[in-house]
Every structure is written in structure tokens, then in C-alpha cells.
Design a protein around this nucleic acid. Structure first.
Lengths: 183, 183
DNA sequence: GAAGATTGAGATGTCAATCTTG
DNA sequence: CAAGATTGACATCTCAATCTTC
């Protein structure tokens, strides 16, 4: 563990640029959605697949997979959205365990009204400064990284790693919190 | 607003890949930090500048600027970190309004112990699959986007007015039917 | 027992006051 | 009044039960 390969200057620069870009993008889009439609990006993320689904409804299970949320987060968020009149919960025919999430008329109207400005914001923030080639390049790089993360995460003990890969307790101070969120 | 330019197929693909990569990266790093050191990425983000500062201390104002958090978030988080014994709050000499945030011995030990594994994780997730050229390319693309966001956000660009220099009309590109973008 | 979903508790982040000092 | 910082209220997210149904 003592012979760590630290990041090079260029790697550090990329790391900072990446995080800075993320932060700016998140803030800008969050604010735009809130101002224009009273929606959070989480709301939007849920509303899009619902609006595109046949009959504008999906099983909670499917919806959760599409947005990559766990059941708990989805359930809490849908409860709040239901309270606001954006979605409805319905019984699932054929499987009494399931729940159907249906977009309400108000939810449909809202996503329809919000989408154009949101897409315009995404375009003005991101795609206005990228050529088609840039888009392909960026996609390839991000997909390569995503694949790598999936590969490494799936393999608990990467080859050539430390002798004792699965027990590394560096914690010296207790912690009253769980993994929280991201910068 | 009715003539919105929707995202092309390639743009949608990039948008999804980008968000998927972010999600995987966040989860992986969050889990790694929690397992190895009992830290969240937010903790880490605060500890790094403190550990690099002269005397291992910074004014809260400075620290807040470095991590790009607002005062409220920083104050809440520092209270929790202080409770865990990672940092201390001290009076600021010369400006009674200020607060000095000082890394404790425990905080220093923890960040020292956590950093190698964290860097190793970042390397294995990201930089192991990027050539030096890739790093430069990715940096340039993200910096370009970040600059663009800063430019567009700073300038409200009064709509309905004359065609002014801020209007980045991305010229004719094909379009898709659906509002296919998430988050 | 496993899967789908809900719930409550605790942690974190945001927003709007509030307080003190320059 | 403006800046630095804190606080309380509230929304959101995570984790660990819990419940029902397959």
C-alpha cells in the first residue's frame, strides 16, 4: 500500500475538470427545471420513462430498473409525487405483489411542458460546443470507463492486487453515518 | 418553444452513457471509501484541502470556496465531522466573524490512511483504461463544456430581443420524436 | 424462502431566516 | 448594509426491518 501510484498532473487536471463540470451541469439543470416547471431532476428522471411507456404506466419494478434506483428510494419518491398529483398507484393485475405507476393527466401535461426547455438547456450547456465527432469520442470514453468500473467492481480481487485484497481496515475513527452522497 | 431541437440518437447515447458512468463511479468510490476508511466522499472532499493546507487549517470561507459548497452545507457537515473528532473549530484571529477549521490528529491519520486506497480505486476505475492522449482529450471536452455552462449561466441572454452573440444556434441536425433524455 | 413493495429511522443537502462583526 | 457563519425546518436518500404474495 505504500507504493501507490499517485495521479499525474494531467490526470489530476482531468479529475478536477470532470468534477467541476458535473457540479456546474447539475446545478444549472436543477435550477432550470425548478424554475421552468417546478420539477427536480429526480422528478424528471421518473417522469420521462413513464411518459414514453405504453398507456403511460409502468410496474414499479420496471421503473426502478430504468432509473437505477433501489426500491426504497423509488417508493419514497413516488409517494411524494403521488401527493403532488403527478402519478397514481394502481393494483397490478396478474401479480398482487406488484404496483402499477400511472402518469396522471397533470403529470403528463407537466412533463410535456417541461421537456422542451429542458432539452434546450441540455443542448445549450453541452451539445452546442460539441461536434458530432466530439459526441462519439466522449461517448466512447465514458462507455469505456463505465465498462471498466463494472468489470472491476464485479471482480472482488483484481489480479496483481495486494496480497490481502479483501480486508483493509484503515478506519481509526468511528463514523455515525453511512455512505452519503456525492460532491 | 414549439420548435425544439431534440437530441439526436448519438447525443442521447452520450447522455445516457455519461449518466450511467457517473452513477457507477459514484457508487463504487462511495462504497470503497466507506469500506476502507469509514468516510463519505463528502468527508474526503473536505479532508483533502485541509490536509494540504499550511498548518492543516483553513478559514471556513476558503474551504467552502475550494469545495464549492455553500456556507450552510459546509457548516452542517463540519459540525458532524467535529462531532466525530476529525476537525476542530477555532476562533479566527484578525476577523472575529471568521472560523478556522483545523484538522485534528485523528483526522490527519484517517486521511493519510484512506488516500492510497482511494487513489488506487480511482486509477483502477478510470485511468487504467485511458491512455495519456485519452486523458487530454477527455479533459479538453469536459473543460469546454464547463466553460460553456459558466458562459450560458452567467448570461441570461434576454429572449425575444435581437439575435445577439449568445445565441448558439446549432445548425441543422436531425431530431428524434421523443424527449429522450433523463435527469 | 425469494421477490415486490412499503415504512421508519437516521444522515445529508437546500432554503430561508438569524446573528455577529466589519 | 454586506460578509461570515450558524441554525431550524423541510425535502431527499440510504439502510434495515417488515409485510404480502409468489
Amino acid at each position: 500500500m505504500s507504493d501507490v501510484q499517485w495521479l499525474t498532473t494531467e490526470e489530476q487536471r482531468m479529475w478536477r475538470a470532470f468534477h467541476g463540470m458535473r457540479r456546474a451541469l447539475d446545478r444549472g439543470l436543477e435550477r432550470e427545471l425548478a424554475d421552468e416547471a417546478g420539477l427536480s431532476s429526480a422528478d424528471f428522471e421518473v417522469l420521462v420513462p413513464l411518459s414514453e411507456a405504453p398507456d403511460r404506466r409502468l410496474r414499479a419494478r420496471e421503473l426502478g430498473r430504468m432509473v437505477s434506483w433501489d426500491r426504497s428510494r423509488l417508493s419514497h419518491h413516488l409517494r411524494r409525487m403521488e401527493r403532488r398529483g403527478l402519478v397514481e398507484r394502481l393494483d397490478c393485475p396478474g401479480d398482487a405483489r406488484g404496483t402499477i405507476i400511472a402518469l396522471t393527466g397533470a403529470g403528463w401535461s407537466l412533463i410535456q411542458a417541461a421537456a422542451p426547455a429542458h432539452v434546450a438547456a441540455v443542448r445549450s450547456y453541452v451539445f452546442d460546443v460539441l461536434t458530432p465527432d466530439d459526441v462519439v469520442t466522449f461517448t466512447n470514453l465514458t462507455e469505456r470507463i463505465a465498462d471498466q468500473i463494472a468489470r472491476v467492481s464485479a471482480d472482488p480481487c483484481p489480479a496483481g492486487a495486494v496480497p490481502d485484497p479483501c480486508s483493509n481496515d484503515a478506519a481509526a475513527v468511528s463514523r455515525d453515518a453511512d455512505p452519503g452522497c456525492e460532491e
